[in-house]
């Protein structure tokens, strides 16, 4: 069962990742999000991590895979609301998510997506 919410707002899917996301949950989320993208193509996917306080290498890698997958499906992924401790952990794990765009808040993430899609049109 999917434990995180995927909300479609106009041309963007907003994924609110829940606290304590387990390995299974992460894989479920990955599958659900890519399937949703297949059904309803949107330009941007916003992944909100503000509830996530602890991250491990598996979740970090899944996140990276998710963002790359989203890009392959023709959308842009932006990760927002990352906690300082999570950022430090990811860097220490060597998972710098270089290919993912980031923003401080959901609002700024939406601005970023709006700007990048405008440029593309």
């Amino acid at each position: 069962m999917l434990t995180s919410a995927i909300i479609k707002v106009r041309d963007t899917l907003i994924v609110s990742v829940q606290e304590d996301l387990g390995d299974e949950d992460a894989l479920d989320l990955q599958a659900a999000l890519t399937q949703q993208l297949e059904r309803t193509p949107v330009n941007g996917v916003l992944i909100d991590l503000s509830l996530v306080h602890v991250i491990d290498s598996f979740l970090g890698r899944t996140l990276n895979d998710l963002a790359v997958g989203v890009r392959l499906l023709g959308a842009r992924a932006v990760v927002v609301g990352m906690q300082p401790a999570v950022a430090i952990t990811l860097v220490e794990l060597g998972l710098e998510l270089r290919r993912i765009q980031t923003a401080l808040t959901v609002e700024r993430g939406l601005d970023l997506l709006a700007r990048s899609t405008n440029h593309r049109l």
Binding site: P84, V86, V91
Partner: peptide, 12 residues
């Protein structure tokens, strides 16, 4: 470089 990467992850 670690500082740069961590700040970037937050969106800065």
């Amino acid at each position: 470089l670690e500082t740069v990467s961590a700040a970037r992850l937050l969106g800065a």
